[in-house]
Simulated scan of single mutants.
Amino acid sequence: MSLALFAEQLLNGVQFGVMLFLMSAGLTLVFGVMGLINLAHGSLYMVGGFLCAAVAAYTGSFVLGLMAALTGAAAAGVLVEMLVIRRLYHRDHLDQVLATFALILIFSEGTRWIFGSFPLFLDVPEILSGPVSLPLGIQYPAYRLMIIVAGLAVALGLYLLITRTRLGIRIRAGESDREMIAALGVDIAWLYTVVFALGAALAGFAGALVGAIQSVQIGMGEPVLILAFVVIVIGGIGSVKGALIGALLVGLTDTMGRFLLPQFFATFMENASATTIGSALASMLIYILMAGVLIFKPQGLFGGTS
Results as ranks from 00 to 15, higher is better:
Ser133Gln: 13
Lys297Gly: 00
Arg87Ala: 12
Val47Thr: 14
Ile104Cys: 10
His93Glu: 10
Glu222Asp: 08
Asp92Arg: 08
Leu66Gly: 06
Leu261Val: 04
Gly238Gln: 02
Ser61Glu: 09
Ala182Lys: 11
Leu191Gln: 05
Gly49Asp: 09
Phe229Asn: 01
Gly137Tyr: 07
Asn271Val: 13
Asp92Phe: 05
Tyr287Ile: 14
Arg172Asp: 05
Ile85Arg: 08
Glu109Thr: 12
Gly42Thr: 05
Ser129Ala: 15
Glu126Tyr: 13
Cys52Arg: 01
Ser273Met: 12
Val55Arg: 06
Val240Tyr: 03
Arg170Thr: 11
Met1Trp: 02
Leu20His: 00
Asp123Pro: 07
Ser61Gln: 05
Pro131Arg: 04
Gly292Trp: 01
Met46Thr: 09
Leu248Ala: 04
Arg87Val: 03
Leu44Ile: 05
Leu289Tyr: 13
Arg258Leu: 09
Leu289Asn: 02
Leu145Pro: 05
Ala206Cys: 10
Leu27Phe: 01
Phe118Ala: 14
Ile232Leu: 13
Ile162Gln: 03
Leu249Thr: 01
Gly17Gln: 02
Ile171Arg: 07
Asp123Met: 13
Ser283Arg: 12
Gln9Ser: 03
Asn12Glu: 11
Val47Arg: 02
Lys241Asn: 08
Tyr192Ala: 14
Pro119Ala: 08
Pro135Leu: 11
Ile226Lys: 03
Gln96Ala: 09
Pro262Asp: 10
Ile85Asp: 10
